[in-house]
Structure formats: structure tokens, C-alpha cells
Amino acid sequence: MAAANSSTSESIPVTPAAPGGRRAFSGDRVYAGALAAAGIAILLVALLIAATTANTARPALARAGLWGFITGRDWNPVEDIYGALPFIWGTLVTSVVAIVLAVPVAVAFAIFLVEFAPSRSRSLLRFVMELLASIPSVVYGLWGLFVLVPLLREHVEPALGRFSFLPLFRGAPLGVGTLAAGVLLAIMILPTIASVSVEVLRTVPSTLREGALALGATRWEAVRIAALPYGRAGIFGAALLGLGRALGETMAATMVIGNSPEISASLFAPGYSLPSIIANEFSEATSALHIGALAALGLILFVVALILNIAARLLVRAVVGKFERSSS
């Protein structure tokens, strides 16, 4: 944004040299000024959100201290005890489940679409993928509640219960819980990871693929030795973008996670995520401490999402930059 503005203003001095350039000059100034204002406004809004959130969070953070707040295991608004750990735990567990389930499927889909699908079916596949991304999350939540949760309760969780030597799969199959939220998030972030992976794989120079094929590689081997290593960082970035989405997703997770602030090693147990608690309690929060605690949770989410986004962008750029250098 800022870069675009500065290049606009650099081009201004050229205009007055043209005959009758006075009017164009002032018009350009207005235009550049308006663009700069819009650009700065976006930055200001972001900063303002961060600042007001931090300010609102202050009472809660002052009470327990930042570290005490993050590691606190109890959440009891009635007694004004606020600890963020159950929500951080719920967010992390559901996001990790989502990533573990979504990345292999999304990458396999991207490989199929770029390397194997007949060119006519490619646009259809991309359309379906984008359709998946455009479904409102409340619809995902409903589907999760009425289809996914019963399926997990009656079939998947009893089957996984056989592996109950792992603490992950212990407990009663409730259906509603961190597993349900994780699976639902996996489906929701699938299109994000798949579409970025598609873009990354499309930047793989065809000369690399041909080099492998000319050595007697099968098409799969060409993907494995040429395309995937080249796109590795970019696909990692795609996964981080998906993770960022999973961390922040509110509605669908709230509907299936169970909304109970406990820390359990079992995926079958109900949990609670950062966005869900904020959405559920903000309307009832009246004391400055309660509101502050919710704002502090929002701040934690904001910081984690920001770090992930920056990391993802840097990784994707590293791959795209490598391509541009080698093809220039």
C-alpha cells in the first residue's frame, strides 16, 4: 500500500511539463492524496484495533499478570477468576487436528490438479474448490452438528476407541468435542491450503519436471524429486495460512466443540476455543475484569495469527522469488 502511494507521488513532477498541465497536476494531487489517505486509514484501523484491545485487556492482565493469565487453568466469571489456558489448549488442539487432516488431502488434491488432471477437468475442480471456500461458516457448523457429530459419535469415535492405549482416544464417544471441531476446521481450511498449493506447484519450472521425466522418472517420481522439493517452502506456507484460518474460525467451531473450558488429553472430550469463548460471553460480560479477560484472549489470538501470517507470507515469497530469479 505505502509503496504504491510513493510511486504515485513520484510520477507527479512529470506532469507540469506538459502543456496545460496545471489542472492535471492538481487533479493528480487530489487523487494521490485520496489514495494515501485510504492507505493510511487501513493501517490506522489495524493499529487502533490492537491498541483498544490491549487497553481493554489491561485490567485483567494487571490482575493476574500476563504469564499468570496465559497459564491460568480456571475460568470462572462469577468469582472473577480468569485463566486463558483451556482456550489456548482448545484452539491449539483443534487447529493441530485440522492441519494434520487437511494438509495431506489438500496437497494431494493440488498435485492431482496441477500434474495429473486432464486440462478440461481442471477448471471444474478449481470451481468446486472455490465453492467449498465460499460456504458460510455457520452452514459448516450446522452440517457439523447434524451430520458430522452423529457420524463421529456412532462410528468414528467407537472405532478410534480401540486405540485407547493412546490418551488421545480415551473417554466416552460424545460426538461433540475437540475431534469434531478439528475435523470440521480441516474441511474448512482445505480450500485455502489447496489453492495456495496449486499456485505454488504451478510455479515449478517445467524444465525441472521434464528433466526428471527425461531421466526415466514416472510422473509421480517427477513430482516427488522435482516439483515437491522445489515447492516445499511454499506448501509449508500454505499450511500456515490454513492454520491461521483454523485458529481464528469462530462460528463453526463454537457449534461443535462442546464449549466447556477443560484441558483434556482426549480428543473426544469437549473443549473451548479462544474465538468461541469471546463470541459466547461478550454479550454477558459486564465487569471491566470480565471484559478485559475476553479482550486479552482476543489479543493472544491476534498476536498468534499475526505471527503465523507473516511467517506464511515470507515462506511463499521465498518460493516465488526463487522462481522469478531463475526465469529472468
Binding site: 519450472p205 524444465t207 525441472l208 521434464e210 528433466g211 526428471a212 521425466l213 527425461a214 531421466l215 526415466g216 522418472a217 517420481e221 524429486i225 522435482a226 522439493p229 522445489y230 516445499r232 526463487k322
Partner: peptide
């Protein structure tokens, strides 16, 4: 393609492999 080798216009070594592994790539593949 194992019997008929090919070298292209642009050098296209596999960037994620060492020099040794690049030369050995065809041996491993086949």
C-alpha cells in the same frame, strides 16, 4: 527414456539435491 537421454536448453539440475545426488538421480529412479 532411460535408453534415450536428454539435455535441455536451460540447465535444469534439481535444486533440492546435492551435486552427487543429481548425478545419481537416474540410477536411483531406475
Amino acid at each position: 527414456r532411460r535408453r534415450v537421454g536428454m539435455v535441455f536448453q536451460r540447465p535444469n539440475p534439481f535444486p533440492a539435491m546435492s551435486i552427487f545426488d543429481n548425478v545419481a538421480a537416474g540410477l536411483v529412479l531406475n
